[in-house]
Design a protein around this nucleic acid. Sequence first.
RNA 1: UCCCCUGUAGCUCAGUUGGUUAGAGCAUCUGACUGUUAAUCAGAGGGUCGCUGGUUCAAGUCCAGCCGGGGGAGCCA
Length: 476
Amino acid sequence: MKYDAIKSLLSTDKIGSTVTICGWVRTFRNDTFLAVNDGSTIKNIQLVIDREEVSEEIRKKLTTGASICATGELIESKGSGQATEVKVATLELLGEANPDEFPIQMKRHSLDFLREKAHLRFRTSTFSAVFRIRHGMTFAIHKYFNDNGFYNLHTPIITGSDAEGAGEMFRVTTLDIDNPPRTEDGKVDEKEDFFGKISNLTVSGQLEAELGAMALGKVYTFGPTFRAENSNTSRHLAEFWMIEPEVAFNDLVDNMDLAEDFLRYLVKYALDNFADDLAFLDEREAKENQSKPANERPELGLLDKLKFVADNDFERITYTEAIRVLLNSKPYKKKKFKFPIEWGIDLQSEHERFLVEKHFKKPVIITDYPAGIKAFYMRANEDGKTVAAMDILVPGIGEIIGGSQREERLDELVEKCKAFNIPEEHIWWYLDLRKFGTAKHAGFGLGFERLVMFVTGMGNIRDVIPFPRTPQNAEF
RNA sequence: UCCCCUGUAGCUCAGUUGGUUAGAGCAUCUGACUGUUAAUCAGAGGGUCGCUGGUUCAAGUCCAGCCGGGGGAGCCA
């Protein structure tokens, strides 16, 4: 049915016109004032009900969560809390929400509690704001790439490639697991499976994206990825969405320039288009921080943090410099770090957090990591020790982007495969790219949910995806 | 997978060195009020204290095991 989005009515230019509101009741005060939200904005509209017009039977059922549709005149509000309100002429109760059973009441609920009510948490201000912004980020990502000459590439979700090396994979099979077909020597006969071989859910579209980039020039993927790691943290999901641009003829510096421009564009987009939702989340975060001890509070609130990122260049340092900074740091000298620091180790969370939150106080791009701690496809540097890799770290989240210039030299890549125990016949097609018209190219992966965490200030990744998939949990 | 914390009303939490009938705020219900802003005021209902076992005259409180939730670490995005 046709109805007026609340978002379109909150400005006063439609005063005097008859409007139709459909939405869900937030509160009903004084048996007269009905706050209704329809999801078009974080703001509610106030419906004013004449008790002569709407029966007591209906009024009793206007409880939090009930759905209604009403028509009436849009008028200037006599109250001070809002500019406009609707003088109700007709009101239809569409669906009741029994207050004894409906779990979302007008009070502060913990995020833990709402996580267990994921089917209803959209009805809260916090989650509706988060998911509006999540949509906005999806749209802005496609817009950025489209405006900059990239082509969106759909890489496979089910993959027969087992060389991606990004983590444990989910097996995909149509075999009867209680009674699988077996070969003569008693092993499960993989040839009988749907694809005639072992297949899995993808952990990354990067290798396929490289194939696209080496013909279309600039491509990006934006799709679901799956990791069967037993990770129990507030920053990991078993099913998450990833953006992976890949650009032909780009080197590591081009790659960093792209990643930084891209991230800052997205933050600006959120500030420009989701001001109401961000203002609400900013206040929410501020209230939450009040209960924290002073030394755990971030120096900048959400909005200030986003503005700072939008307006300032990221810090760029090499891994080797980062190690030097850490070795000269106060916490290192006072032995506050739990993990040792020496050239060659992978940076721990505590080290990354120090660099980003205490030392530079801004997003940091770390480049040129030791070859031994990075993936096989990253391009070997001239020093023979490091590779052309880059990670972008942001305050509060840690690593949000990981990328590299890819190894385009066939001989070097074949050597790397040997060193990493990857049989050439498994990635013959990836090696073919270096045999025929090879060229330097680079790309990165951005974890979409980590981006949404950063932009919304939410502290747990399970609160920025509608239905999170984590170990031991696939509810809904 | 490892370490730490935690489980008391629908929700958020308090509950002393073990001691009478387990409390508060919000939510709900009843009534009052009627231009309210998470309205207010008065009253009421609501509990197998996660589960199982143990110590004790006595366990929400102490001990053990199990189950659930959270935080941190590793792996990474």
